[in-house]
């Protein structure tokens, strides 16, 4: 690596365009809403910057606090489900025959690159009252009734008088299903990368020395995969927390998340200062989660250096 002084002309040629772009079209917009978040609305579109903290205080209002808690809850449940399912999937791919592995991996990665909106829309078609899941359930219901008729007990109406479709859409359940659907690949990829690198003789040794599969998993696999688990949890939790589209399209009136409130402030409610404050709170939470990971890995490195 050269010092920039060795070749200042070339350095500036490569440095100025990206730095200028970033400053002008990314950092300036962020700085703008940061300033807005300390402002007050005066008039329809005018914002008066008074350096008040009221917008941040308003976020502590029970109404918004509850939405924050709900967002954390959704993101937390999503992360937990992704971690459990993702771990199993990652193990299954790691130990799959060598030729199948790249294909399985590609199958995990592809949905990650397909349009989020289309995938969410696809879920709507499946979950709605007259969607695929309910159609399949109705089939089973008919079968069940046919079976009961064969047994001559159809008059008891054991399965109910008629098929009751499940309400799977426009509620909290749909939001969590949607979030898991979108974020599962985020969890599988780091876990797979860690498991793939893992020295299998440790597992073998543990099994040879008499530990059971569960014990081996708990005391050998999990500690070795710990950095990947932490990474996976953070890169699943952070985007899940800031999700807009999933709760917007799949959620009901009581499954709104922070991003939906922010959108409302910037669009229909037209209260930019408050929306800006909420955006920054969300960003600070994101930074905090990422910083947590660095602190965690620094500690781990220190411990390992001492051991």
């Amino acid at each position: 690596m050269d010092s920039w002084r060795k070749n200042p002309l070339i350095f500036w040629v490569f440095a100025v365009p990206p730095a200028a772009w970033l400053l002008l079209f990314f950092l300036t917009p962020l700085a703008l809403i940061w300033v807005f978040s300390f402002g007050e609305k005066s008039g329809l579109i005018d914002i008066h910057i008074t350096w008040t903290a009221d917008n941040y205080m308003r976020a502590l209002d029970p109404l918004y606090l509850q939405i924050f808690l709900k967002s954390f809850w959704f993101a937390g449940v999503t992360t937990a489900v992704c971690l459990i399912v993702g771990f199993v999937v990652a193990i299954a791919i790691t130990f799959a025959p060598g030729r199948q592995r790249p294909i399985l991996l590609l199958l995990v990665m592809l949905p990650f690159w397909t349009n989020l909106l289309i995938r969410t829309y696809a879920l709507i078609a499946i979950l709605r009252t007259k969607g695929s899941v309910n159609a399949a359930l109705e089939h089973f219901w008919d079968w069940g009734n046919g079976l009961l008729a064969l047994l001559g007990v159809e008059h008891l109406q054991l399965l109910g008088a008629q098929f009751e479709p499940l309400h799977l859409l426009y509620n909290n359940f749909a939001v969590v299903v949607g979030l898991v659907y979108v974020h599962l690949p985020f969890m599988v990829l780091p876990l797979y990368a860690a498991l793939d690198r893992m020295d299998r003789s440790y597992i073998e040794a543990s099994l040879d020395l008499g530990a059971g599969q569960l014990r081996t998993f708990r005391s050998v696999v999990i500690p070795m995969a710990a950095p990947a688990i932490v990474s996976g949890v953070i890169i699943t939790f952070v985007p899940a927390l800031g999700s807009f589209l999933t709760p917007d399209l799949l959620g009901g009136t009581d499954s709104q998340m922070i991003a939906n409130v922010i959108e409302r402030q910037f669009k229909s409610a037209n209260d930019w200062p408050f929306g800006a404050a909420l955006s920054f709170i969300l960003m600070y939470v994101t930074f905090f989660a990422i910083a947590l990971r660095s602190v965690w890995s620094a500690r781990r490195d220190a411990r390992e250096a001492l051991a």
Binding site: F26, P29, L30, I33, P239, A259, E263, S279, L282, F287
Partner: peptide, 20 residues
């Protein structure tokens, strides 16, 4: 700063661009 656009929630970047 370069990795920031990858990290921050899309909604934050969206509203920042809109305001800008």
């Amino acid at each position: 700063a370069v990795s920031l656009p990858i990290i921050i929630p899309e909604i934050c970047m969206g509203v920042a661009m809109m305001a800008f």
